[in-house]
């Protein structure tokens, strides 16, 4: 923050920065504690978990529990192990993120760099999808999925999520800031639409694509209602749906320690993506306003 001058910082932070730090640490505790607590629980034995209160430090069953979850096969969700669940969820998150970006960038390119009949009609058709989330058309969409035979398929899990007004609007907005002179110069040099797309538009959009990728990966990973509707068989479950099945039939022999391990696996990948790609993510989130 270069504009944070000497005068500015001193006048604002002379009053004990400790108060600020204390409040922030309290905030961090609220934000991180539930995740930390689950991690601690994932390192305890079943007996320890069943006898609250839990200890505050990780226990000694880390290796046992994680080994069992990864290589033991989780009985509670029909013998499906964590690998299958992680694979399914990764396929969904990655295809949704990549698919959405590809589809949106193409349609935004068409709308901004070409003039053709019904251009604005198409734009509004895309825009209005903003107002039709799955939640308002649950049953008929389910029926379409059944009719097309897409239940329990990866296509069914991902394709319908790929149309996105938000991403198209974002790319459109960004493309409109590309100066016309650039396109003119490229056309004088004999570049066609594809050349211009790959040599100029795509490189210029790199930051936007990175930011959008993080946001859409999280969007895909955290889907709930959609996979709940279109999957019946346990081996097509995403990790989140599988977890819900594990806890909703909870009874005396629920393997809580394995539930905790699975929860950690459901949290870790998206958190890693957000933390590692933080710079693009924060920029993308705040600048695109969702």
């Amino acid at each position: 923050m270069p504009e944070r001058t000497e005068a500015g910082t001193t006048s604002r932070s002379r009053r004990s920065p400790w108060v600020s730090h204390a409040v922030l640490i309290a905030g961090i505790l609220i934000v991180v504690f539930p995740i930390y607590y689950t991690f601690v629980a994932s390192t305890l034995s079943l007996q320890q978990i069943l006898r609250p209160p839990l200890q505050l430090l990780p226990g000694s069953h880390f290796l046992d529990n994680y080994y069992e979850a990864l290589f033991g096969g989780l009985g509670r969700v029909g013998g499906i192990n964590v690998w299958t669940l992680l694979l399914n969820t990764s396929i969904v998150a990655l295809s949704v993120a990549v698919g959405k970006i590809v589809i949106s960038i193409l349609s935004a390119y068409a709308i901004v760099f070409f003039r053709f009949p019904f251009r604005m009609t198409f734009f509004w058709v895309i825009f209005i999808t903003l107002m039709l989330p799955v939640e308002v058309r649950i049953l008929p969409t389910y029926k379409v999925m059944v009719d097309l035979g897409l239940i329990d398929t990866y296509t069914g899990l991902t394709l319908p999520l790929m149309a996105s007004a938000t991403a198209t609007l974002l790319f459109r907005q960004f493309f409109m800031t590309i100066p016309g002179e650039l396109l003119e110069a490229a056309r004088v040099d004999g570049a066609g639409p594809w050349r211009f797309f790959f040599d100029f538009v795509l490189p210029l959009s790199k930051t936007n694509i990175a930011a959008l990728f993080v946001i859409l990966f999280i969007y895909g990973w955290t889907q709930y209602l959609w996979p709940l509707l279109v999957t019946n068989s346990n081996d097509m479950n995403t990790i989140i749906i599988a977890l819900r099945k594990m806890i909703s039939y909870a009874d005396a022999d629920t393997q809580w320690h394995l539930v905790m391990v699975t929860t950690i696996f459901a949290i870790l990948p998206p958190v890693a993506v957000v933390v590692l790609m933080q710079r693009w993510f924060v920029k993308g989130l705040v600048e695109t306003e969702k």
């Binding site: 590809v102 589809i103 949106s104 193409l106 349609s107 390119y109 068409a110 709308i111 760099f113 070409f114 003039r115 053709f116 251009r119 198409f122 058709v125 895309i126 999808t129 039709l132 308002v136 058309r137 008929p140 969409t141 029926k143 379409v144 097309l148 394709l159 319908p160 790929m162 149309a163 198209t168 016309g180 002179e181 396109l183 003119e184 056309r187 066609g192 639409p193 211009f196």
Partner: peptide, 28 residues
Amino acid sequence: VIFPHKVLPYLLLVPQIAITLVFFYWPA
């Protein structure tokens, strides 16, 4: 400044519009 192509823009829009019609507008 724009490209003069007449058919290409429609092809670029096909994937999004198709998904939108089948999975959004029809169910709605």
